[in-house]
């Protein structure tokens, strides 16, 4: 899956994650429009479920998001982390990033994977 570098590259400029919409070919999933298998693949690349930690690629993506102030503020608004200094804020956001990517189900709380679309 070469999408991680594309995703990383796109993440440099977008201001919201839905701006990084990434389309997958449904032929790779028996012509099904269901994005869940693609989300699961993304999750496996980014998150180690047995240790509940970010993988190296997950760390890379987190650092890329962190370097994009607009995207950072969209996913981890500073005001949501009361009274944490910059280092604690980054640690807490990394923890939350793990929480976000460990859940591929799309609901109101977790829309992280909504950039994955199938056509």
């Amino acid at each position: 899956m070469k999408s991680i570098s594309t995703f990383k590259h796109n993440s440099l400029k977008v201001r919201r994650l839905c701006g990084a919409g990434y389309w997958f070919d449904s032929k790779k999933n028996n012509n099904s429009p269901d994005p869940t298998p693609f989300k699961e693949k993304f999750k496996q690349m980014l998150y180690n479920s047995s240790t509940n930690t970010l993988t190296f690629k997950g760390e890379t993506i987190f650092n890329t998001i962190w370097g994009n102030i607009s995207l950072r503020e969209n996913l981890f608004p500073r005001a949501n982390y009361p009274n944490l200094n910059d280092r604690q804020y980054q640690s807490a956001s990394r923890l939350d990033f793990g929480t976000l990517i460990s859940d591929t189900s799309s609901n109101i709380i977790n829309t992280f994977y909504n950039f994955i679309k199938v056509k």
């Binding site: 949501n80 982390y81 009361p82 009274n83 939350d96 929480t99 709380i109 977790n110």
Partner: peptide, 16 residues
């Protein structure tokens, strides 16, 4: 303003 006794209630959600 500062806060104390912060509790992480969920991803990105703290009460204090």
């Amino acid at each position: 303003i500062t806060s104390k006794n912060s509790i992480r209630e969920g991803a990105g959600l703290y009460s204090s």
